[in-house]
Amino acid sequence: MILEALHFSAALAVSSLRKPREIAGSVGLWSRARRCAKAWAPHEENCQGFIEEKVGQIVERRSVAVLGSGLLRDVPLDYLAKAFQTVTLYDLVHLPSARMKVRRLGRENVSLVERDLAGGLEFLKAEGAPDLVISACLLSQMALHASDPAAVVRRHLADLLGGPWVTCLITDTGYEIRNRTGEVVGTGDLLGGEPPPPAFRAWEWTVAPFGEVTRDTETVHRVIAV
C-alpha cells in the first residue's frame, strides 16, 4: 500500500490533467501487473510480437502514435523508437514508472502526451497523420468507464480503422471466470455489445489468476489483434 500511495502522489503531482480517480485506477493496474507478472507475460509477448509484425509491413516509418500506452508493458518501446523517427505515446495518465521507462530509453524521439482519447481521434489528423496508429488494449478500458459503452466503441473503431494511416488494434473483447476444474462460472462482454472487427490473431489473457480476486477462480480475457 505504501508503494501505491507514493506512486499515486507522484503521478498526481506531474499529471497535466490531474484526474485523481483515473490516476488511482492506473496505479491499481500497475500494482496488479507487478503481482501478476508471470500470468501476464504471454499476453504482453503476444502484443509486442504483433506490433512488430505490423511495423515490418510498413514502408514509411516517419511517425507512430500509440493510443493507450499505459504501463508500457505490452508495447515494444525500444523497437518503435528505433524503427520510427518520432514516437508519441498518448494516454489519460502517464505514471512515474512509464515516464521512467521513457527516460531510461534515452531517445529524444519519444514523447508523452496526456489526453482523453474517448473524445475521438480527429486531433491526429490535425497534428499531421502518423504512418501507424496503435490502439493498445485501450478500447475496453474506455468502454468500461463510459456512460454509453457501445457509442464509445463504435466511434473509436470508426476513427481508427477509417483514418489515413496503417492501423494496429489490440483489444480484449470479453471474459470468462473459471473455477479450478475449468468450469466457466461467469462471462461478460467488454465492448458494450458491439461486434469486434475480424481478427488476424487471438489469444487468452489471464488477467486475474487464482488467488488474485478469489482463491478458487481465475478471470481470463479474450484478446484480438487486427
Rank of each mutant, 00 (worst) to 15 (best):
C47G: 08
Q48A: 15
Q48S: 14
Q48M: 14
G49D: 15
G49K: 10
G49P: 08
F50C: 03
I51G: 02
I51K: 04
E52K: 14
E52M: 14
E53F: 07
K54T: 13
K54L: 10
V55W: 01
G56E: 06
G56I: 05
Q57H: 11
Q57A: 15
I58W: 02
I58R: 09
V59A: 14
V59M: 11
E60S: 15
E60D: 13
E60P: 08
E60H: 12
R61L: 10
R61I: 06
R62L: 13
S63M: 06
S63C: 11
S63G: 10
V64W: 01
V64P: 01
A65L: 08
L67I: 04
G68S: 08
G68T: 06
G68D: 05
S69H: 06
S69M: 05
S69Q: 04
G70F: 00
L71T: 09
L72G: 02
L72V: 03
L72C: 05
R73E: 14
D74Q: 10
D74V: 07
V75W: 02
V75E: 05
V75R: 03
V75C: 08
V75Y: 04
L77A: 08
L77S: 04
Y79F: 15
Y79L: 10
L80I: 10
A81S: 13
K82I: 09
K82R: 14
K82E: 15
K82Q: 14
K82G: 13
F84W: 05
F84E: 00
F84D: 01
T86Q: 15
V87K: 00
V87Q: 00
V87I: 01
V87L: 02
T88A: 14
T88L: 12
L89E: 03
L89C: 07
L89I: 04
L89Q: 04
Y90G: 03
Y90L: 09
D91P: 09
L92P: 00
L92Q: 04
V93R: 05
H94P: 00
H94Y: 02
H94Q: 01
L95K: 00
L95G: 00
L95P: 00
L95C: 04
S97D: 12
S97V: 11
A98R: 00
A98D: 01
R99D: 07
R99F: 07
M100G: 09
K101V: 07
R103D: 12
R103Y: 12
R104G: 11
R104T: 11
L105K: 03
G106L: 07
R107L: 15
R107Q: 14
R107Y: 12
E108M: 11
N109S: 13
N109A: 10
S111L: 09
